[in-house]
Design a protein around this nucleic acid. Sequence first.
DNA 1: GGTCACCGATGACATCTGTCATAAAGCCCC
DNA 2: GGGGCTTTATGACAGATGTCATCGGTGACC
Lengths: 201, 201
Amino acid sequence: MIRVLLADDEHLIRGAMAALLALEDDLTVTAQAATGAETLSMARALHPDVAVIDLQLPDLDGVAVAQRLHRDVPACRTMIVTSHGLPGHLRRALAAGVRGFLPKTAAAEILAGVIRTVAAGGRYVDPQLAAEAISAGESPLTVRETDVLILAASGAPIDEIARRASLSSGTVRNYLSAAAGKLGAANRHEAARLAREQGWI
Amino acid sequence: MIRVLLADDEHLIRGAMAALLALEDDLTVTAQAATGAETLSMARALHPDVAVIDLQLPDLDGVAVAQRLHRDVPACRTMIVTSHGLPGHLRRALAAGVRGFLPKTAAAEILAGVIRTVAAGGRYVDPQLAAEAISAGESPLTVRETDVLILAASGAPIDEIARRASLSSGTVRNYLSAAAGKLGAANRHEAARLAREQGWI
DNA sequence: GGTCACCGATGACATCTGTCATAAAGCCCC
DNA sequence: GGGGCTTTATGACAGATGTCATCGGTGACC
């Protein structure tokens, strides 16, 4: 029997997925968590075989949760389920040692199969998303360009970004100009949108 | 037996919700749709008692689907399920005659109950969201201000917004300035973010 | 040791954007 | 008919933003 931990902040979805998995004879949902912290403490206590983690959790990023889980409960395999199938997220997840990556648009019938694959030590990545991730490539932005673009994404004026990043406003403008240039955007706001669509920020 | 139509573009979620509803003796999921168009044609053919519609569908807005459904299949009650519980969305849905509004963060156990309530001609709105909707009030923006702000939300420069809205760039700047003022934003990008968070655009 | 990329900064310049005053047209309501 | 609001527009101005050249410092790589 494969013991599964379900982590999703959307209670309705979590319950529905539990109902779906309850139909399988060889799977049992031993715990459900709504936050990253809950996921970690439950996994430490119960040692599930597979943790199915939503990418968007209120406190921690799903990938960050997976990373800590690998450190604290090495026997527990992890897989990510997400609404927004962005290439950059897949890339980050795989780098963190996640073994399965499934957008919520995938067919309901394959979830159990993927859990079995992951539990057995295999890997599964949604084929369409994998293709996109390969064709999209990685972020062309440097670390600081990314930092500044994240701060710019809220729509704040340059001065506030500079204050929050502890940089001079001139430097911020240079970084944003560089980022917009690399992304082919007309201004920083369009750049932020494009980077978000790729999962780079 | 209450006959339910499920509309959600996320196949995994749709399937999981179907599994959840299959546990109820008095409910049966007679059809599943992934788009607004599919929802409408299936509802016309099958006349379900209740349509459970996700707010985000690839082609049409969930509320727009509900509106057309009321016209084409008046006996079919509608309810909306959504990831993002924004006050503005609830307001629009109720105005369109939707009888149930449930964020996906609601407990899985209540879904079946809400469907029964809606099927019986009752109404159900998530209590927390209802409180927010009341306290938030309606959008202070005029129709054109909203239009222009929607176009601005992509991060495009003023000239392109003007071109797409068939307005002079000066007029666009006036509208955006007015919108930013009403929303207390420092610039149009922050204004767009704030309006999005309220579900006004 | 030299080259290269990244980080951080400054200064100058042109352009974009936000703001305000003003105005004409249309509509609704009293 | 007048008052108020919306839509659309123009002109003017200050300040914000994007772009570019240039500089010094740091760490990696050959």
